[in-house]
Amino acid sequence: MTLDANAIRERLPHAGAMSLLDEVVAHDADAIHCRARSHRDPDNPLRGTSGLHALAALEYGAQAMAVHGSLGATDAAAPRAGYLAAVRDLRIHARRLDTIETALDIHAERVMADARSSIYDLAVEAAGEPLLAARATVILEPGETP
C-alpha cells in the first residue's frame, strides 16, 4: 500500500508546509520508504537565509518514522505522539538540500520498539547518493499501548 501527501498529512500532527513528505513508496512491519520534493520549495519552513541545510534531512527522517509508527497502530489504539529524544552516529554527506534537483528518498528501518520508545536507522538520499544517515530514538507520550 502506498500513501499520497494527503494520506500522510492525516497521520501526522504537522500542518501546512511543515508536512514534508509527498508519498510513501513502500512499507512493511519493519521499514518504510518515503519520497519528498519539498526541499526545493523556497517556502520550506526549515529553510534559512542561506538555503536548506542538509541537517534538515533529519526532520524528513523523523516524519518517515512517525508515518511508519502510525501504519502499525490498530484502530482500537490510535498512534501516540512521539518526540525525537536522541540522534547517534549522524553522518551528513551534503551541505544543502535545496540545491538537489531530484526527489529525496527517505528510508527508516525500525531497529527496536517497545511500549515507550522506538529506535530507527535513517538514511536520506537523492538519486542514489547519500545525504544523511543516523540512528534516531523517539520517546512516545504515555498512553494506551497499541
Rank of each mutant, 00 (worst) to 15 (best):
residue 67 V to P: 11
residue 67 V to H: 12
residue 68 H to N: 00
residue 68 H to P: 03
residue 70 S to F: 00
residue 70 S to I: 04
residue 70 S to P: 00
residue 71 L to N: 05
residue 72 G to R: 13
residue 72 G to F: 02
residue 73 A to T: 03
residue 73 A to M: 05
residue 73 A to G: 10
residue 74 T to I: 01
residue 75 D to E: 14
residue 75 D to Q: 13
residue 75 D to K: 13
residue 76 A to K: 02
residue 80 R to A: 14
residue 81 A to E: 11
residue 81 A to C: 12
residue 82 G to R: 07
residue 82 G to S: 08
residue 82 G to P: 11
residue 84 L to K: 08
residue 84 L to F: 07
residue 85 A to Q: 04
residue 85 A to V: 04
residue 86 A to Y: 01
residue 88 R to F: 01
residue 88 R to P: 08
residue 89 D to F: 03
residue 89 D to A: 11
residue 91 R to L: 09
residue 92 I to G: 05
residue 92 I to D: 06
residue 93 H to P: 11
residue 93 H to F: 15
residue 96 R to W: 04
residue 97 L to R: 06
residue 98 D to N: 08
residue 99 T to R: 14
residue 100 I to W: 00
residue 101 E to P: 09
residue 102 T to D: 15
residue 102 T to P: 08
residue 103 A to S: 13
residue 104 L to V: 12
residue 104 L to H: 05
residue 105 D to I: 01
residue 106 I to C: 00
residue 106 I to W: 00
residue 107 H to E: 13
residue 109 E to V: 07
residue 110 R to P: 01
residue 110 R to A: 06
residue 111 V to I: 15
residue 111 V to L: 15
residue 111 V to S: 12
residue 112 M to H: 15
residue 113 A to S: 12
residue 113 A to W: 07
residue 114 D to K: 02
residue 114 D to Q: 13
residue 114 D to T: 14
residue 114 D to I: 10
residue 115 A to C: 05
residue 115 A to E: 15
residue 116 R to T: 10
residue 116 R to F: 12
residue 117 S to I: 02
residue 117 S to P: 06
residue 118 S to Q: 13
residue 118 S to N: 00
residue 118 S to C: 15
residue 118 S to P: 05
